Amino acid sequence: MLVHGSWGGGWIWSRLAPLLVAAGHQVYAPTLPGLAERANDPRDASIGLSEHIDDLAGLLERADLTGVTLVGHSYGGMVTTGVAARLPERVAALVHLDAFTPLPGQSCFDLVPWLTDVFAELSEGGGTARPLDPAALGVDDPDDVDWLRAHSTAMPVRTHQEPLPGPALPDTLPVTFIRCLRFDAFAATADDFRARGLPVAELDCHHFAQVSRPAELASLLLTAAPPATEVSASAGASPETKAKAGIRAEAEVRADTGAGAPPGARVEAGAGVETGAGVETGIGAPPSNAKPENGTVARSGAVDCSEGSARSEGLAGIGGTA
């Protein structure tokens, strides 16, 4: 389950998702309320962290998902932490991708105080903040900058003001932190993980590893996740159950590397990628003729993630590779 950060949407995972699909994993990349194709909701200005946690938790419950690896990028770490604490019986592992790692009672603004001023400068009035320019987050490829600018949408400010509700995460849940070395906001978080003996991995990239280093990131995620056979919807989930969850089972939508990908996407999926894979979108399902920007499902194939310079520390004990 891939959960985007501020100003994002399920679209931001379009380089990474095919690699995980090719490795045999069922992949969901939902868009949170008030953003991307779910923007212009009458509730936009009042949407907070609690609404995002409720929304994602509802997806797991309606689809009857178990054995889930939750991956939260940036602000998405606030949401995945809340969901994992609420539904620990459904979550196998938690991965923070250059993300917030809050305790109950902490907000984004508490953890990174300078964000308060940033959001004030970006305020559109009415409780939303326009997107922060991706160049300010270290993105230096002009095509990537243009693509991120074109897709990003305003963020409800309350999502960053509202503290994480309880309960706390269970101590037994495997948790990994992946730090993007060319963005310093979460350097102290990575150091804290190391000090507590928790696994940390590093990627030599800016804040959006899923855009600039999809193959290397896929390799790290496949190490952090349990085997693909354990990460799936319940085998007995009926079409009716999936329909209630908002999932279009086996919709024939192309899942090739061009689906929703920015110009020059470097998706190295190797042999076995199914171009007619079923798409299960969960939240914010697009029309049946849309490209799969909100989640792709397949159960075969292989992925070559041997390139790149990803470094990991202590990941081997978290779970088998797919």
Rank of each mutant, 00 (worst) to 15 (best):
T159P: 04
T159I: 06
Q161M: 13
P163L: 04
P163T: 00
L164S: 04
L164N: 05
P165E: 04
P165D: 05
G166M: 07
G166E: 12
P167K: 04
P167I: 06
P167F: 03
A168W: 01
L169G: 02
L169W: 02
P170L: 08
P170M: 08
D171G: 14
D171R: 14
T172M: 01
T172Q: 13
L173K: 05
P174G: 07
P174K: 08
P174A: 07
V175D: 05
V175K: 15
T176R: 15
F177E: 01
I178L: 09
I178S: 03
I178P: 03
R179L: 14
R179H: 15
C180N: 07
C180F: 04
R182H: 12
R182F: 08
R182S: 08
R182W: 11
F183I: 00
F183V: 03
D184P: 10
A185C: 05
F186H: 07
A187D: 14
A187T: 15
A187S: 13
A188G: 08
A188T: 11
A188P: 02
T189I: 06
T189S: 03
T189G: 02
A190F: 00
A190H: 00
A190E: 09
D191M: 04
D192E: 14
F193M: 09
F193T: 05
R194W: 00
R194T: 14
R194C: 01
R194S: 15
A195W: 04
A195M: 02
R196W: 04
G197P: 08
P199A: 09
P199T: 01
V200N: 00
A201M: 09
A201R: 05
A201V: 08
E202F: 10
L203P: 10
L203I: 14
D204M: 06
D204S: 13
D204V: 09
D204F: 10
C205W: 04
C205F: 08
H206F: 10
H206E: 15
H206C: 14
H206N: 15
H206I: 06
H206M: 08
H207W: 06
H207V: 04
H207N: 09
F208C: 11
F208A: 13
F208N: 13
A209F: 03
A209M: 07
A209R: 09
A209Q: 06
V211W: 12
R213W: 08
R213F: 08
P214K: 02
A215Q: 08
E216P: 11
E216A: 14
E216F: 07
L217G: 09
L217N: 09
A218D: 04
A218W: 09
A218V: 07
A218I: 00
S219M: 13
L220T: 05
L220F: 03
L221E: 07
L221S: 07
L222C: 11
L222K: 05
T223W: 12
T223N: 12
A224M: 11
A224T: 12
A224R: 12
A224K: 12
P226A: 07
P226F: 01
P226E: 00
P226N: 03
P227I: 10
P227T: 12
P227V: 12
A228E: 05
T229F: 03
V231N: 05
V231C: 13
S232H: 13
S232F: 06
A233F: 10
A233L: 13
